[in-house]
C-alpha cells in the first residue's frame, strides 16, 4: 500500500467517524411510542445528563441549577449534545424535571428524536423513559405534573394543570388569551365566537 493510499484510507475513516449524528441509527431496542409527529425517529441511547448553561458558558452550579435550568443529554456514542424539549405527558410540559434527578449521571434513555432539517429540528428529543446506567428499572418521564401539584396545593381541582396554574391565569387576566390586552381580546373573541 502506498503512502497516498494510506492517506486516502485515513481520510475516508475520518469522514465516517466525523459524520453528523443522524448518520447513526439509534432506534435499535427502542420501545418509544409514536406521537404521530412528522419528523419523529425512535431513539434509545446512553448519555450523560448535563447542564446546558454550564456546557455552553462554564457557569456550573453543583446541582445543575436545582431544577431551574434546561438539561441536555451528551450522547455517549458520538458526543452529540441532544436537547430534550418534551417529557412524556401530553400536557405542555418539558423534560428538565425528568432529568434533574440524574444530573451528572450516566443514563439510558428512550424516546423520539426530531429530524426536520428544513426548519432546523435536529438533536431535539421527546423523553419517554429513563434509567441510570447499571440499573434495571425504567422510570417513565411523567413526573412533571406531580411536581406541579406538589408546588401548587392551592390550585388543586379538576381539569388540566394549565387551566389552574396561577401564573397562567394571571397572564390571561392581564393581557387576554391573545396577549394584546383585554379590550382587544374582547374584540377578537367576538369575531371568533359571533
Amino acid at each position: 500500500m502506498t503512502m497516498g493510499n494510506h492517506m486516502k484510507t485515513a481520510a475516508v475513516l475520518l469522514t465516517v467517524l466525523a459524520t453528523p449524528s443522524f448518520a447513526q441509527d439509534f432506534s435499535a431496542g427502542s420501545e418509544a411510542k409514536s406521537w404521530n409527529l412528522y419528523s419523529e425517529v425512535p431513539a434509545r441511547f446512553d448519555a450523560t445528563v448535563v447542564d446546558l448553561m454550564c456546557n455552553m458558558t462554564g457557569d456550573c452550579p453543583a446541582d445543575c441549577g436545582g431544577g431551574t435550568r434546561q438539561l441536555a443529554l451528551l450522547r455517549s456514542a458520538d458526543n452529540v449534545l441532544v436537547f430534550p424539549m418534551k417529557n412524556n405527558q401530553p400536557a405542555f410540559t418539558g423534560a428538565a424535571n425528568e432529568l434533574q434527578p440524574f444530573c451528572g449521571k450516566a443514563v439510558e434513555v428512550d424516546g423520539l428524536l426530531l429530524d426536520d432539517p428544513e426548519i432546523g429540528a435536529q438533536n431535539m428529543y421527546l423523553l419517554q423513559r429513563i434509567r441510570e446506567v447499571g440499573t434495571e428499572e425504567w422510570i417513565k418521564a411523567n413526573r412533571w405534573t406531580k411536581d406541579w401539584e406538589a408546588a401548587h396545593p392551592e390550585a388543586a381541582g379538576d381539569g388540566p394543570w394549565f387551566n389552574r396554574d396561577p401564573r397562567v391565569q394571571a397572564e390571561i387576566a392581564t393581557n387576554g388569551y391573545f396577549g394584546l390586552g383585554l379590550e382587544q381580546d374582547a374584540v377578537i373573541l367576538k369575531e371568533l365566537f359571533p
Partner: peptide, 17 residues
C-alpha cells in the same frame, strides 16, 4: 404570535424550552 399566545404561556410555565 397571537394565535398561539395562550399555548406559549402554558408551555413556558410547563418548562418547555
Amino acid at each position: 404570535g397571537t394565535s398561539h399566545h395562550t399555548c406559549a404561556t402554558w408551555c413556558s410555565a410547563g418548562g418547555v424550552p
